[in-house]
Design a protein around this nucleic acid. Structure first.
Lengths: 248, 248
DNA sequence: CGCCGCGTTGATGGCAGTCAATTTCAGTGG
DNA sequence: CCACTGAAATTGACTGCCATCAACGCGGCG
């Protein structure tokens, strides 16, 4: 039942991407940390298990999701190098995290020890707070994406989000680490709709492919939020207009 | 432009609901706090304004939302007494918060001062972390609700969520503090769909009304997550089955 | 009384979920 | 190197749900 992991710390000499030996978050906790490599689909932490560890992605990617009783799953975070997870208000995880890419490398920190250490090191406490706030920022960004109206809009803003997170330097080249199924469960739409939206965007010349998971953003403006407002001059239903007079 | 608020601290002798003089979060910061009453629809903090304050709801309710360029708005948190907001990773708020109920009372804390204080008081730092984690938990719960398939499911799980947060004691009586429009913008569906879903649930005997905003949950199981899986024996599409063999 | 916020109901078209079939791709073992 | 296998991805056909437009009832308030 327990995930079969190499529970020995790993050298970390050649991490696959990012977070090389450069300074990374939680640098001062290396003596408590255990860095592990996971294979594709391997579980890192599981729903309704004691939340005894906090985690930081070193390389690769992982999906944080909630399994619904009806068999569906809702991905509630896509984790990339530098992303933090596992820190919850409760005693048990209310989600599952699985590695996506091969050679996904993740550092785990014992919660009790780190909390104790944070009580004596304000800088650490502040750093943890920032990591949690960034996780919350990701969650809000996802909610804004999922809350969009049409499926091409969701897929489009998903691509923009991934582009911004994967390669802040080259913002028009996206190497998706996830399958269409993962995108579907992230956006709460069906796989077929994801596929159709992507081909739709391709035919409209908004994006281009070089391989199924390598996307180039051709027309960034068309993917942007402004699209819906400029495309057709229909102003969209606001639900806000009636708010203004109340403030007076 | 600045919200016309009574910027003097208020006595807090008779807060409308909850958080009476009983011990509340951030108790030790009363000397820094400013408690203000807001009227319906009044802005508490605004998008792209410097994030200089953290806030705690004392009484009433508020909506945290993001205004989209096309005029829509997405509510990303419904704030009830005891809820914390305004703590962000960036220097500017990326959302707006408005009071909903009349007499909404909110305590604001100067960010810089509190952060400095947290650096010397680990208990305070830990308490802030817990408040942020609870905000994150609310966000994840909302994402799970918005990610559901049909509109009645979204509305139903919204009612359950509100029931759990509003009155942990009487979990079958829900006094909604929000309008149908707010529910719609919270669930990312149209107002009409919210109304239709509610009447649908009423006709199916799942809920009962005593006034448009007073709901009684009659059949809790029918609102639960299990509904979709038991109703019809269609197992739903999983996207998970194919994961299992990979772990081996 | 009339205005406006709020809530509901009806009619209709378009989009997306579902079922199904096919193709492409990656990994494995011969 | 290639055949084989199963997952990943795409495309098509069809149905049902939901967004949209429209109209109407209700209640508070100036």
């Amino acid at each position: 039942m327990a995930p079969k992991v190499t529970s020995q710390p790993i050298g970390l000499r050649h991490p696959h991407r990012a977070l090389a030996n450069r300074p990374h978050p939680l640098q001062g906790l290396d003596h408590l940390a255990i860095t592990t490599s996971y294979s594709r689909g391997q579980e890192i932490c599981g729903q309704s298990r004691p939340a005894d560890n906090w985690y930081l992605v070193v390389a690769g990617s992982a999906r944080r999701y909630v399994a619904r009783p009806d068999g569906r799953r809702q991905i509630v975070d896509l984790l990339l190098p530098g992303d933090f997870f596992g820190c919850t208000a409760r005693d048990e995880y209310d989600f599952t995290v699985e590695a996506i890419s091969v050679g996904t490398t993740i550092t785990s920190y014992p919660r009790r020890r780190v909390e104790a250490l944070a009580d004596s090191d304000p800088r650490l406490a502040r750093e943890i707070r920032m990591l949690v706030l960034e996780a919350m920022s990701r969650l809000q960004a996802q909610l804004l994406i999922v809350g969009r109206v049409t499926a091409p809009e969701k897929v489009g803003s998903f691509l923009l989000e991934m582009a911004g997170r994967l390669s802040p330097g080259h913002p028009d080249k996206v190497m998706l680490p996830v399958s269409r199924y993962d995108i579907a469960d992230y956006l709460a739409v069906s796989v077929e709709t994801v596929s159709r939206s992507l081909t739709d965007l391709k035919h409209r010349g908004v994006i281009a492919f070089s391989g199924t998971r390598s996307v180039r953003i051709v027309d960034r403006d068309a993917l942007d939020d402004r699209e819906a407002s400029r495309q057709h001059d229909a102003p969209g239903r606001s639900n806000i207009s009636w708010r203004q007079p109340l403030v007076a």
